[in-house]
């Protein structure tokens, strides 16, 4: 979707403001949200792509106003309702309504180290050879899907060169909508700064973007 989460190349977002000796979490609730999102993710009712897309669906003005963990809180609340794990009334009140469905076994503290160590690999085995090769000139497709995509706006229609082949990975553009993994090759594509941003940029500078086979055409 052409949303405000797709920030690459936008102006007007201010200057970067590093904070010295920044804590991991600025408030206790931020850590709790982080942990809730991870613990709920571990249950497998949705996936990381669906979780990202849910945050993209937050109204644009709210997204820009909210802090990172406020967006996580909002996204998780929406996912719970969407997947029938809680009603909006329950999320608002914090109390389960009588007769509400009980959950699957929760992630336990003893399982957390293994959960972190294993992660959630997105690479998939595939006998399919890559369609593109390093050094090949490619063009990012000019796609504007209304749903989730990892093809950022600033490279659409732009020409680049395949830098390396990463292997076969789950395709978020379908996975986010629970329409299957559609595993396909992912490539790091080098786009020259001047191709993306114009001739007043330093000629040698470049942006590397990881894109899936369905995002690219050979030139």
């Amino acid at each position: 979707m052409n949303g405000v989460h797709d920030l690459g190349g936008m102006h007007g977002m201010g200057s970067v403001q590093p904070e010295r000796d920044e804590p991991v979490f600025h408030h206790r609730w931020e850590g709790r949200v982080f942990a809730l999102v991870r613990a709920m993710g571990a249950l497998g009712r949705w996936n990381i792509d669906a979780s990202r897309h849910q945050r993209e669906l937050i109204a644009a003005a709210d997204q820009l106003r909210m802090s990172y963990y406020e967006r996580w809180l909002e996204g998780l609340s929406q996912l719970l309702v969407r997947h029938g794990l809680a009603s909006a009334a329950e999320v608002a009140s914090g109390r389960a309504l009588p007769g509400a469905a009980a959950g699957t076994p929760a992630l336990r503290a003893a399982q957390v180290p293994a959960f972190i160590a294993r992660g959630s690999p997105a690479a998939r085995e595939s006998g399919r050879p890559p369609r593109l090769r390093p050094g090949q000139r490619v063009r990012a497709r000019n796609l504007h899907p209304a749903g989730h995509t990892r093809l950022p706006r600033y490279v659409r229609g732009k020409s680049g060169v395949v830098d390396r082949v990463h292997g076969v990975f789950v395709f978020p553009d379908t996975h986010a909508h629970l329409r299957g993994e559609d595993p396909q090759h992912v490539y790091s594509v080098r786009f020259e700064a001047r191709e993306l941003w114009g001739d007043d940029h330093v000629a040698a500078d470049a942006v590397y973007v990881d894109l899936w086979e369905d995002h690219l055409d050979a030139e």
């Binding site: 809730l36 991870r38 609340s77 959950g103």
Partner: peptide
């Protein structure tokens, strides 16, 4: 939200502590 999800058995408070 945390109270709700604990009540529903979807999360475990100690697992949240461990993640943080």
């Amino acid at each position: 939200l945390e109270s709700l999800l604990i009540e529903k058995g979807l999360v475990d408070s100690q697992a949240l502590d461990a993640l943080v």
